[in-house]
């Protein structure tokens, strides 16, 4: 049973009478515990796919099943609850609230899920420990480095124990060394059993994940899946069919 089942999802935009297919009949499964990357050049539709997978947006056609819940025709309120409980986001520009300190930023998702303040503090500190920033809890986002800010954002994404974490160009705003460290952190988290999806345009970054999905013009152009022994999807299907025939 897949954690996320995407079936025939399309997203259409209308711009000045012209119809733009940001996503065109995409089907995809993501299992629990997977470490995958969604790659593609800008404008390919990878961000739209992430927004739809992350329940920030809903598809024009098609269905999504997340953790056994169909999220078809979900109200904005239900989407918000799902984002809060089951999904974590890490953004390119960190997106921490500058007025709150590190600890308060990490506590923020739990504010909306109604934890007591003591529980919030304990869990936020635990999440900060996970990313190695427990001694920066009282600092403001502006007082720490970019890499540290991104770690705080990761702690915030993890604090509600989501089913899946989406990271949108998490290293895009960092120098290569720091980016390396952030990717290393993701790898570590993946080994601990978390489901992580990296969204990037950079094949080098995508290379850290075992499974890679390449999006072009709103379609899945190529898929590398270790379970199918490094073959691309079309060949894998052929191979499966061949096996069945045999």
């Amino acid at each position: 049973m897949a954690l996320i089942e995407v079936r025939n999802v399309s997203k259409l935009y209308h711009l000045g009478g012209e119809e733009i297919r940001a996503l065109d009949d995409v089907s995809l499964d993501i299992d629990g515990g997977e470490f995958i990357s969604i790659i593609g050049p800008s404008g390919s539709g990878k961000s739209t796919l992430m927004h739809i997978l992350g329940c920030l947006d809903s598809p024009t056609h098609g269905t999504i099943k997340l953790d056994d819940t169909m999220i078809e025709n979900a109200t904005p309120h239900q989407l918000a609850r799902i984002r809060n409980q089951k999904i974590g986001f890490v953004f390119q520009f960190f997106n921490l609230l500058p007025k709150l300190n590190v600890l308060q930023n990490v506590e923020l998702p739990m504010v909306y899920s109604g934890f007591s303040s003591r529980e919030r503090r304990e869990r936020a500190l635990a999440a900060l420990k996970l990313v190695g920033l427990e001694n920066r809890a009282r600092h403001r986002p502006m007082q720490i480095s970019g890499g540290q800010q991104q770690r705080v954002a990761i702690a915030r994404a993890l604090v509600n124990n989501p089913k899946i974490v989406f990271a949108d160009e998490p290293t895009g705003n960092l120098d290569s060394n720091t980016g390396e460290a952030i990717l290393e952190l993701f790898r570590k988290l993946s080994q601990e059993g978390r489901t992580i999806a990296l969204v990037t345009h950079d094949p080098e970054i995508a290379a850290v994940t075992p499974r890679r999905i390449e999006i072009r013009d709103g379609k899945i152009a190529k898929e590398v899946d270790p379970r199918l022994a490094g073959l691309d999807r079309g060949m894998a299907v052929q191979k499966q069919n061949a096996n069945q025939v045999a």
Partner: peptide
Amino acid sequence: IREIGIRKAIGATFSD
């Protein structure tokens, strides 16, 4: 606006 976007992305509902 950005702050509100962040809050909504991490789960703030309309009523929040």
